[in-house]
Design a protein around this nucleic acid. Structure first.
Length: 550
RNA sequence: UGGGAUAUCGCCAAGCGGUAAGGCACCGGGUUUUGAUCUCGGCAUUCCCAGGUUCAAAUCCUGGUAUCCCAGCCA
């Protein structure tokens, strides 16, 4: 699309502008820090565009860092998928890929430093006891009986934890802060736990793993991050983020700034819940075209530019929001309207026989690939005596509002002739199967010379030259605007047009190539199947549907 | 009176004391061999509510109300 890289400001960019103006920072350094425990979704795209967008516009840097402190849920397959998605969206991270696990040695040293300062201790409370000791939202917690263990003993205990001398769950390392804090996150948070599991990056080197709150701030500081952008639910965690950096020997003090996460109507935006859909085979996989994942949107036909444009349009604020699907759809329509070549495809065919057209003739008509962009060229369209048209484009009788083929009336075949319907056949169920027509040979590329007005235009495909393909039509994944985990899925989210017939030029479509099937919508060739399969990206705006519904 | 946040059109969202941007959606007119595109026009006397300060308030003050987040050895 003619991507207008307008740079909408937002409260985060305002903060950065001020930090640059005041000299607090000479340049910006952001980071995108996903946990490799699932595929990225459109909400992550918002974060990617924010972080990498700032780096781009401010001539700063943006790192890609895998926040991999919980090996049980993570996998290299996810790191590869994430790398792929970020690049596909059009961004390149600064330097090598980073992993929180790169810092495990340093993290360990900082933990030891906290113990030496009397600011961390090994605690043997069971998870259940720890919960009781933590108190509630309205009542203060109480100190762990292990809180006053000596520094020397804590050092020895932590070494034993590291050496695998305690069982999983037997003890943890906790920061000594304030069991009465109104910030739950400050009530002596756990900073290390024991896990005897293989890590996708560090193998079996470690059996203790640092927690998010301890890891993230230090990782940011070690990478020289200036502005650490995350979502709203981490607002309380910011107090712990700052506490850790203030209490260890580290120079860099990144500023955490929170913004609201994206919610999209009729879909889910949680890796955990999306994972359930995948695990329970409710969708084909993470890249199912109905999924709000980057991979799913890609397979559906969304372009990187359209997703970047969407991110730009929704803005960045701290307000809780739920964006309408129409907003996303408008972005891809705008891109594809400009860039997708047109083609004709009949999804639900009925036959048209042009009785006054030579049975053996095959006329090679020429049609522009784009109505407003001559530079996109033309393609050949074979015209024959027998054609297919859309079943919904013929009615035996209709009022004047119906601008399509009606018995005894005329209609224009797109890029071809004007035809008139004379009679039709129907099957035992009353479904129309064949319409017998005559054509006006004087109407190719021009209006009838006698001044007859033909109002409608319908699309068609040659019956003998058309090609078969599977066309998949998609609808919203859920029936409710704000679904939760057990909301009902839309049983009609996938429909397959089994009898679709396409114009022959589509035989050359490459995987992922986008087209506008005229009068129908935007489609792209599936990027997985080797068969000829097209996925519907989005329909055309359809003002007729509103009229017809009345 | 636990704490942390947020409230501007149906949905996003500008606005930062000088008299309500923009986009999506919607409603009308025009062009059109896609009921598409394009184009022209319409869409908040009002900013969660109630008081107050001021010549002037969405913006400042006071008091309410609503919604979201926090009690994982998840991130």
């Amino acid at each position: 699309m003619a991507e207008i890289e307008n740079r909408p400001s937002n409260f985060i960019r305002t903060i950065i502008d001020n930090d640059l103006a005041s000299g607090k920072h000479a340049s910006t350094h952001t980071r995108f820090p996903p946990e490799p425990n699932g595929f990225l979704h459109i909400g992550h795209a918002k974060s990617i565009c924010l972080n990498f967008g700032i780096a781009k516009d401010y001539s700063g840097l943006c790192n890609l860092r895998f926040d991999d402190t919980n090996p049980e849920k993570e996998d290299v397959d996810y790191v590869n998928a994430i790398k792929n998605d970020v690049q596909w969206l059009g961004f390149q991270w600064h330097g090598d890929i980073n992993y929180s696990s790169n810092y495990f040695d340093k993290l360990h040293s900082y933990a030891v430093e906290l113990i030496e300062k009397g600011l961390a201790y090994v605690c043997f409370l069971s998870p259940e006891q720890a919960r009781e000791y933590r108190g509630t939202l309205t009542e203060a917690g109480k100190n762990s009986p292990y809180r006053d263990t000596t520094v020397a003993e804590n050092l020895a205990l932590f070494a034993k934890m590291k050496n695998g001398e305690f069982k999983e769950g037997e003890c943890v390392l906790r920061a000594k802060i304030d069991m009465a804090s109104s910030f739950m996150v400050l009530r002596d948070p756990i900073i290390y736990r024991i896990r005897f599991v293989h890590h996708h990056q560090t193998g079996n080197k470690w059996c203790i793993y640092p927690m998010y709150d301890f890891t993230h701030c230090i990782s940011d500081a070690l990478e020289g991050i200036t502005h650490s952008l995350c979502t709203l639910e981490f607002q309380d965690n910011r107090r712990l983020y700052d506490w850790v950096l203030e209490n260890i020997s580290i120079e860099c003090k990144p500023q955490q700034i929170e913004f609201s996460r994206l919610n999209l109507e009729y879909t889910l935006m949680s890796k955990r819940k999306l994972n359930e859909l995948v695990e329970n085979n409710l969708v084909e996989g993470w890249d199912d075209p109905r999924m709000p994942t980057i991979a799913g949107l890609r397979r559906r036909g969304y372009t990187p530019a359209s997703i970047r444009e969407f991110s730009s349009r929704i803005g960045v604020t701290k307000q809780q929001n739920t964006v309408e699907m129409g907003m996303l759809e408008a972005c891809i329509r705008e891109d594809l309207n400009d860039n997708a070549p047109r083609a004709m495809a009949v999804l639900d065919p009925i036959k048209v026989i042009i009785e006054n057209y030579d049975e053996s003739a095959i006329e090679e008509l020429s049609a522009p690939n784009h109505p407003n962009k001559e530079e996109m060229g033309k393609r050949i369209l074979p015209f024959t005596r027998e054609l297919y048209i859309e079943a919904e484009d013929f009615r035996a009788e209709a009022n004047k509002k119906f601008k399509r083929l009606v018995l005894d009336k005329e209609v224009r075949l797109r890029n071809a002739y004007v035809i008139k319907a004379n009679r039709f056949d129907e099957d035992a169920d009353g479904n129309i199967t064949t319409v017998y027509c005559t054509y006006d040979p004087e109407t190719l590329g021009k209006n009838p010379t006698d001044g007859r007005k033909v109002k409608g235009v319908i699309h068609w495909v040659s019956a003998s030259k058309g090609i078969k393909a599977q066309v998949r039509l998609y609808d919203r994944l859920f029936n409710v605007a704000n679904p939760d985990a057990d909301s009902e899925l839309n049983p009609e989210s996938l429909k397959v047009a089994q009898n679709a017939v396409l114009e022959p030029s589509l035989l050359n479509a490459t995987k992922e190539q986008a087209f506008q099937f005229e009068r129908t919508g935007y489609f792209c060739r599936d990027n997985k199947s080797d068969d000829l399969v097209f996925n519907q990206t989005v329909g055309l705006r359809d003002s007729w549907a509103k009229v017809d519904a009345k």
